[in-house]
Design a protein around this nucleic acid. Structure first.
Length: 354
DNA sequence: GCGATCAGCGG
DNA sequence: CCCTCGCTGATCGCG
């Protein structure tokens, strides 16, 4: 379709083909040339059929190289993958995973999820998998003390739906799936310390619209706004912020004369107490689970943590005990202003247990 | 063989 | 202000 041979895996060569030979309109540039990132190509898919083929190729190539072939190379003689977990890498106190990274196994697309089916327990065992429901947002409700957010969680509401209702000014039962999807992006944006610019990129909305959503959000959840102002000031005054348990993140860049550097430190100041408290909570849960396993003499073993999720390999005879204990231990690690909820699943592969 | 760059995966 | 972070794979230029 390009009329010549080129390396489809080279963004540089692809850029020349699409934007110089085929004269497609380029939306974005990188430091060194044209951007061929997925969000750019998606906008061009209608203009030229080759673009959709490239996106499809990219998806399949990613799954094959990083996950199918990549994970295969790590299978040990015992048939298992033994990754490495690092406790001293991230700014927020999360753990990270390498060789391979077991914390970014695909889940969001149907084809990607297929890869999770290759993770299976040993004979006679199953996986018991529990994940915290909306843990960072619950921590945000706790730390900020915002009444609207606290009420949403105490009443067991769908928090993205509740946010959509507030931000778009519609009754909760009239929230459209589109509005809920956008509210979810806003909520994640807040958690990950995303700027209005980043939110705009993510939502693909017009200039000013993202700012308007953020304005609406803060009007409806005023103590969240207050929290963000207070934490910024605390970072400036003391040079650090802390999690609900007092673990500190030092932010020397908060006083930088370079404004972008300072802004980055401010986003970290806002984000770290939420993500860091969530990291503290699941570490407490891991300790509680391990203690419980030892005290009860269980054969079950904790085999993986993925930020808000714990996966145990459990012999059939312990399934009912662990299915009850795991979410109870996770919920019980701390008494916050909102309940901590953990949802549990049992299956003979990771995809089905999640 | 190494580092920079781009791209894409998860929470 | 090229703006979330940490990780991995492919390409490309360099020595």
């Amino acid at each position: 379709q390009a009329g010549e041979t080129f390396n489809i895996q080279s963004p540089k060569q692809l850029g020349v083909i699409l934007f110089e030979k085929m004269h497609l309109p380029y939306a974005k540039k990188t430091k060194t040339g044209y951007s061929t990132a997925a969000d750019v190509l998606e906008k061009l898919a209608e203009e030229a059929p080759i673009v959709q083929d490239i996106l499809s190729y990219r998806q399949l190539a990613k799954l094959k190289s990083t996950y199918a072939d990549g994970l295969h190379a790590f299978i040990a003689k015992d048939g298992r993958i033994h990754g490495t977990f690092n406790q001293m890498v991230t700014a927020t106190g999360r753990i990270s995973s390498t060789d391979p990274n077991l914390q970014n196994i695909p889940v969001r697309t149907k084809l990607g999820r297929e890869l999770r089916k290759v993770f299976i327990p040993r004979d006679g065992y199953v996986f018991v998998d529990a994940d915290y429901s909306q843990i960072e947002l619950r921590v945000m409700a706790h730390i900020s003390g915002d009444e609207g957010l606290l009420r949403a969680f105490r009443e067991g509401r769908d928090v993205h739906r509740a946010t959509a209702s507030e931000v778009f000014g519609v009754d909760i039962e009239h929230v459209t799936s589109q509005q809920r999807r956008m509210a979810k992006v806003i909520n994640f944006g807040l958690i990950y310390g995303m700027s209005a610019w980043g939110l705009r990129q993510n939502l693909g909305v017009e200039k000013g619209v993202a700012e308007h959503y953020i304005e609406q959000y803060f009007a409806r959840y005023p103590k969240v706004k207050r929290y963000m102002e207070d934490i910024r000031n605390q970072a400036r005054t003391h040079g650090y912020v802390q999690t609900a348990f007092g673990r500190r993140l030092w932010l020397p860049d908060i006083a930088s004369s370079r404004i972008p550097v300072q802004k980055a430190a401010e986003r970290a100041a806002i984000n770290a107490p939420m993500q860091g408290t969530a990291a503290d909570l699941i570490k407490k849960a891991m300790v509680a689970v391990q203690k419980w396993l030892q005290e009860t003499g269980a054969k079950s073993r904790l085999i993986l943590q993925v930020h808000d999720e714990l996966i145990l390999e459990v012999p059939e005879e312990e399934v009912e005990t662990v299915r009850e204990a795991l979410p109870r231990l996770m919920s019980g690690v701390a008494e916050l202003k909102v309940p901590l909820v953990a949802e549990v699943g049992v299956a003979d592969n990771w995809e089905a247990a999640h």
